[in-house]
Nucleic acid binder design. Structure first.
Lengths: 205, 205
DNA sequence: TGTACATCAGTGAACGCGCGTTCACTGATGTAC
DNA sequence: TGTACATCAGTGAACGCGCGTTCACTGATGTAC
C-alpha cells in the first residue's frame, strides 16, 4: 500500500541508518544497505544525501541529539547528585551506543566543518554540559567554567573508551601487573561512587 | 633482484600496514592494498594473517607498542615534570596518530580477547602508566594506585578525543554559548600548564 | 472547478571498482641419509 | 659432500560480492490560469 511518494523518507532514512550503524557497525552502513533495509530503491537515498559521508554526518548529528537529550538536566537548581547522574548517563550512552559514539568522535567523518548542523549539534551538547555544571557551581567566570567543563568532558569521554574495553581485556594468558581489569571492574561496579569522588576533585580544583 | 622467499615479510607487512592505516585511514587498509604497497602478490599476506581482522589486530598491537615506547619513563625517580611530559607524549601520540589510535581504542577490532598479543601489549601500556605514577607518588596501596591511574588514563584518552576535534568544530555559523573552541585552543596552546593543574588535582585527591 | 504543465521524489538498469578468500601451482630452503 | 624429498613461502588466476554513483525514466504532487 506504499505510495510512490513517501512523504517522510529523509527522517525515516536517518532513523533507519542509526539502527544499522549501531547494530552492524558503521562500516556496514552503506547507502545500499540503508535503501534495502528501508524497502526503497537503491538510489532513493541520493535524493536526500549527496554522498555517503553526508549520510554518516547525518547519523552522527542524530547521535549528538540523542546524547544531548540523555545528558542535559532540564532543571534550575542542579545538585551534585544530579550532576553525577547526568555524568553517568553520558558514560552509559557511550557504552550502549558504542558504534554510533565511535562515529561521532572518531575519524570517520573527517571534517565536521563541512556539516554545519553537525557542528551546531555537537556544540550544543557541550553547551548543555557546561550549563549543567554552571547551574550546580554557580561559577561566574566563563574561562574557569568552560575549562572545568572540558576536563569533566574529557574524563567522561575517556571513561567510555576505557570501560568499553573492560571485558575485552579479560585474558588468562597475561595478568597485568597492576590489573586494569580488576580496577575497571571495581569502578564500573559502583560508577556513581567513583564519579562522585573524581568529579568533586575536578570541580573543586 | 627480489628472491622468491622474502625472509622478513611479516614484519615488513605490519610496518607497511601501519603506514597505510595512518596515512589513508584504517578503512582503506585492506589485504590487497597492503600486498600492492608491499610489492608482493595479492595472496602473500595470507601466509601471515589468516583474516583481515588479524591484520587489524597486528596494526593495533604495533600501535600499542609505539604508544608504550612514547609514554614509558625509563628512570627511577620520576618527578612531576617527568610525569607531565609523559602525559603530554600520550596526547601527542593520540593526535599525531589519529587513525591508528582509533583502531586501537575503537570498535574495529571487536574482541581483543581473540588476540592474546594485543591484550598483552595493551595491558603493558597501561602498566607503564601505573609504573610512571607509582614511581612518582611512592604510593603503596595498589587499589588507590590503579584507581588513580585509570582516572589519569581516562583524562588523557578523553583529551585526545576532544582536542582532535578542535579545528573541526571551528565554525562561523554557530557560536557556542560558552565557546568550547576558544577553550580547547587556550588549553592546547599551553598543554603542560593545563596538565599540571589537572593532574596534580587527580593525583592528590 | 478543471486543466496544463512544471517540479519533485522515487525507480531500475547499468558502470566499473576493490575487496576477501580459495585454489592449484611453483620456486626456494632445510634436512636426513 | 651429494642427493632425494618434505616443507615452506610466495604466485597468479579466479570466484562472487557489495559498493558508490550515473543516468534516463516515471509516477505523484502542486500551482497558475
Amino acid at each position: 500500500m506504499k505510495s510512490y511518494h513517501h512523504g517522510n523518507l529523509k527522517e525515516e532514512l536517518i532513523s533507519c541508518a542509526s539502527v544499522i550503524c549501531e547494530r552492524d557497525g558503521y562500516a556496514k552502513l552503506s547507502i545500499r544497505s540503508l535503501a534495502k533495509e528501508s524497502n526503497v530503491s537503491q538510489t532513493a537515498p541520493y535524493r536526500h544525501f549527496k554522498t555517503k559521508e553526508e549520510l554518516y554526518a547525518a547519523v552522527a548529528t542524530e547521535g549528538f541529539k540523542k546524547l544531548h537529550t540523555a545528558v542535559f538536566l532540564q532543571k534550575q537548581n542542579v545538585t551534585l547528585d544530579d550532576f553525577i547522574k547526568s555524568s553517568k548517563s553520558y558514560i552509559d550512552f557511550g557504552l550502549q551506543n558504542a558504534n554510533t559514539y565511535d562515529l561521532m568522535f572518531g575519524t570517520v567523518v573527517g571534517n565536521f566543518a563541512e556539516y554545519p548542523e553537525l557542528v551546531e549539534t555537537a556544540n550544543k551538547t557541550f553547551d548543555s554540559l557546561v550549563l549543567n555544571l554552571s547551574s550546580f557551581l554557580k561559577e561566574k567566570d566563563e574561562n574557569i567554567l568552560s575549562g572545568k567543563s572540558i576536563t569533566v568532558w574529557a574524563l567522561l569521554h575517556g571513561m567510555v573508551g576505557i570501560l568499553r574495553k573492560q571485558v575485552l581485556t579479560e585474558n588468562d594468558n597475561y595478568t597485568s601487573e597492576f590489573g586494569p581489569m580488576s580496577t575497571t571492574k571495581r569502578i564500573s561496579s559502583d560508577l556513581p561512587a567513583y564519579l562522585e569522588k573524581v568529579l568533586t576533585g575536578i570541580i573543586k580544583a
